[in-house]
Amino acid sequence: MSETKDKAKIKEAVKRHKRETYIPVKPDLQLGFVHNNVDCIGCRACEIACKDKNGLAAGPRFRRVQYIEGGTYPNVFAYKVNMSCNHCEFPACLPTCPTGAIFKRKEDGIVDIDSTLCIGCRRCEAACPFGAPQFDPSDSIVKKCNMCVDEIEAGRKPYCVMACMMRVLDIGPVDEIWNGELETVAIGPNDKISRQVKNMSNIELTKPSIGFVAHSKGKVK
């Protein structure tokens, strides 16, 4: 059959590269999210705005405001950790994709997925340490946050950021987020930025492009 022949041909052609590890894209600029875990009221307007923007039914949630609480009555605490796709420096999802649907943009480091190329093997879903790729059972394909690239290209910010009633979610060049240079009301005057918060998977796995204002109980040493 011609198909098997082609397959063999491809195999042959790629053979000389076969032990090459893929070279991660080094973006000209890496955009990332910043979220204030403390001042966030957890209203999930960002989540719903995202669902509406991306036309998703119940099930897949590109953005997830996660509620953390602890302590013992009456000494309790609560805070929120809000993540969508972290557009990692070394995205684990990307090399797992058999169809090349996932790619990292050179100009801004956004990790995008073209779900029209997805065959639903769900490897990326398993590989992501942060739960970003979301399987959409209605289409049997995986979709995820692309930081609203259409809005970025139009000179605006993603829907989630523009939905935030408390103004505690923002985007910016991730270096500026981390070193505190980004001008944003998401970060308060006395706030410090953490790259890793409690219960978040080890950031060394993929180097996620995200910064948090961590809660005192959510800080890691």
């Binding site: 491809i10 790629v14 894209v25 036309g55 990307l94 790619f103 990292k104 100009e107 190329l117 979709k143």
Partner: peptide
């Protein structure tokens, strides 16, 4: 017409395809 540009195939020859289809940004409905 969009500048979505950077395609998967350019990103290190990850995938071999018989019919090359470039991954594009913004793939969702609506």
């Amino acid at each position: 017409t969009t500048a979505a540009g950077s395609a998967a195939v350019a990103a290190g020859g990850l995938v071999a395809l018989k019919t090359a289809k470039e991954a594009k940004a913004f793939a969702y409905e609506p």
